[in-house]
Simulated scan of single mutants.
Amino acid sequence: MPNSRAALDWLLREDDDERAVPVSERVEVDDDHWRMSTERLDIGPGMWVFLSLADVWGEPTLEPRHEEPSAWLCSNIAVKGKVSLSLSDGLSTDITDRCSVLYRAVDKRARFSPAPSQRLQLAGYMLRSDRVRQMLGESLPAMLPPLIDENAVSSKLIEVPVGVRVRQAAGSLFTTKLRGALRLLFLEGVVLQLLAMQTARLDRGVSGRENPLSPKERSSILEARDLLLANMRHPPSLAALAAEVGLNEKALNAGFKELFGTTVFETLRNERLEHARQALENEDLPVKRIAFRVGYNHVNNFINAFTARYGTPPRKYRVRRSER
């Protein structure tokens, strides 16, 4: 395999950095949380494929990291099952058999948290930015350049709906009928097909907008996100936030969906819960106090939201993390 493989620091993480296991071509894990096998393939210049199969019964975490110097476009598609994806600067979403994701992690790390009690079949690929530009040329959708921007200072995540054709194509990546060069050739063709189908979705406007954001709208929405998250305990209302940045409420929500993959409310909720998760791991504070700090007046509402997001109640999450 190419020497560049050694330069890719891809980590399989179940709890902390001390127990991180370097991944070569294939890694298999069988423990109290899951039975998992993941394969990584360098299938051509600027192209990687990741194939994971798992029976999940606990709460594992997969945290890959790559050290390639250039920008890479990443994608994950769940053929079966559900996994939550979160990036270090607060962006997050659920990858399911109906919703795939295109993203760029600014620090080249991402956290995958599979839902418990399921069979997971997850396909992923990475494409170097220069190869994406070379392949798409003038057909590059307006939403794609931020995902391959060499000078980006923040992460970018876009949800892309999945239909039967995309799911079938992603499932074909797991074929065992081909070997050697024939398999690599087949995988490369499927990845290009997936990129084409996902890009076509973007070109039609995943967010429902007929036209891409103007530079002024983009600036207003970035400003709105900063204002929204500046005080999660007392955030502005949607109407107040829209008025502050000079947009109507519908345009603001659509712009959030286009830039961040989530609505204004979902962005606030995800950021609150991510801050709460970090507090549970790193601070010895009562759950009620953490809930209040991130903006939940009623602890039961916080518990329900946290459980829906991370698959376990906050107290149980803290106990399991401390045991690990």
Rank of each mutant, 00 (worst) to 15 (best):
R5G: 06
R5F: 11
L8M: 11
D9S: 08
L11W: 12
L12W: 14
L12Y: 15
E14P: 03
D15P: 03
D17F: 02
E18F: 10
E18S: 09
R19N: 07
S24T: 14
S24Y: 12
R26A: 15
E28F: 14
E28H: 15
E28A: 15
H33Q: 09
W34R: 03
R35W: 15
M36I: 14
S37I: 13
S37R: 15
S37M: 12
R40I: 13
D42R: 03
I43P: 08
G46H: 00
M47W: 00
W48G: 00
W48K: 02
V49H: 07
F50G: 08
L51A: 05
L51S: 06
S52G: 14
L53E: 15
D55E: 14
V56R: 04
W57A: 05
G58T: 02
G58D: 05
T61F: 05
T61M: 09
E63S: 11
H66I: 10
E67R: 05
E67P: 02
E68P: 01
P69L: 00
S70P: 06
A71C: 12
W72N: 05
L73D: 02
C74S: 09
C74H: 10
C74W: 07
V79C: 06
K80D: 11
K80L: 07
K80V: 03
K80A: 09
K82A: 10
V83L: 01
S84V: 07
S86L: 07
L87A: 05
L87H: 04
D89T: 01
D89L: 00
L91Y: 08
T93M: 00
T93G: 01
